[in-house]
């Protein structure tokens, strides 16, 4: 565990596209009964959306809450496994769209579903070293599931953005501590020429998700770390509803501390944005003095865990942008053929 002290969240924003498809509707096409599926429906990006456009929407909400001059943001890291260009940074597009251009650093990051939380870790380091005043960390994905594959029921679209800077009396939350754990574990991957990821089915559980999340989280809780009763909310990566519940049970975390940060049942797995959107939902309701434990997971594999303490600044900032619940509720259902059009699966000649 590393005590980060001095780095704060100044703005945050979560974006979920307006379209939803029900697991039941996908199951109808493939002859699977998904009526009791824990992930009831998933968010689908519109035909004119991609990871860059969603990153911009989340960043704009973060900027409204941060109330800073965007020109002061000099690093923008976007974590994504569905970036619109193979070569050309997403961060420069975001910078221009939020009025932060010219910025200084804007590389894209890829680490499956944890690229966004890794962006937070990098930005925090740049702030602590004094290299930058403010930085923007984003996780954004339009996740793809091969038609008929188990992932198709959950792979979803969304983005979350955080403006970080030095701790001051206006800040929303302080990032108190960080820990991470990564090993070479091939549970899920995508080769460059393939449109869809491959996964090692049941191998994704024990040696992958659980080992890495617990590796990162236990280091925060052990070695001079925090006690469970000092933490009010737990947010874990949520590729489904079951995995975060199992982690919570193993750590003996009460359900009430887990449910505010668990939204996969309503939006699906938004990959790089997934655990970060859970954090956004908690920031929308937490009180000053409360602590949040966030643990991401990225296949391949690794986990970042952060301890975040809410500050008084949350009161005046929270309502400067819509809450995530408003975006979750404002939806348009589409059927499978519309979904194929949105995912650009229909060949245009």
């Amino acid at each position: 565990m590393v005590k980060l002290g001095g780095v704060a969240v100044h703005g945050y924003g979560g974006y979920i596209p307006r379209y939803r498809i029900k697991a039941e509707e996908i199951g109808r096409v493939w002859g699977q009964d998904k009526s009791g599926s824990p992930v009831v429906e998933k968010a689908v990006a519109g035909i004119d959306e991609d990871a860059a456009t969603m990153a911009v929407e989340a960043a704009r909400m973060a900027l409204r809450r941060a109330m800073i001059d965007p020109k002061k943001i000099s690093a923008i890291y976007v974590g994504s496994e569905s970036k619109p260009y193979a070569v050309k940074p997403t961060g420069t597009i975001v910078a221009e769209a939020i009025g932060a251009s010219p910025t200084k650093l804007a590389a894209d990051l890829e680490f499956a579903c944890k690229a966004g939380s890794e962006a937070i870790a990098i930005i925090a380091g740049l702030i602590r070293s004094g290299q930058i005043e403010y930085g923007l960390a984003i996780g954004a994905d339009t996740a793809q599931g091969r038609p008929g594959d188990a992932l198709e029921y959950t792979a979803a679209s969304g983005a979350a953005a955080f403006i970080l800077g030095r701790l001051d009396d206006r800040a929303i939350a302080e990032i108190e501590a960080w820990s991470a754990y990564a090993t070479d574990t091939p549970d899920f991957w995508r080769r460059p020429s393939d449109k869809y990821p491959m996964h090692a089915a049941r191998f994704t559980g024990e040696p992958a998700y659980f080992r890495h999340i617990l590796g990162a989280v236990q280091s925060l809780l052990e070695d001079d770390g925090y006690a469970l009763n000092e933490i009010d909310y737990f947010v874990f990566h949520q590729p489904n509803v079951k995995f975060p519940l199992v982690v919570a049970k193993y750590l003996k975390v009460d359900q009430e501390k887990l449910s505010p940060g668990l939204i996969a049942n309503l939006v699906g797995n938004t990959y790089s944005a997934c655990s970060l959107l859970g954090l956004v939902n908690v920031l929308d309701q937490a009180q000053p003095g409360q602590r949040i434990l966030l643990a991401s997971y990225g296949s391949g594999a690794g986990s970042d865990a952060f301890l975040i303490r809410i500050l008084d600044g949350i009161f005046e900032r929270r309502d400067l942008a819509p809450r995530l619940a408003e975006l979750i509720e404002d939806k348009i259902y589409i059927d499978y053929s519309m979904y194929l059009k949105f995912r650009e699966e229909i060949i245009m000649r």
Partner: peptide
């Protein structure tokens, strides 16, 4: 909102720009 406005095939640049949507509120 910020959206894709024109996509120049598989090899060209993606042109982004504003569009308007019904306000969330």
């Amino acid at each position: 909102v910020f959206r894709r406005v024109r996509i120049n095939g598989d090899q060209g640049i993606i042109e982004y720009g504003y569009k308007f949507r019904p306000a969330l509120r």
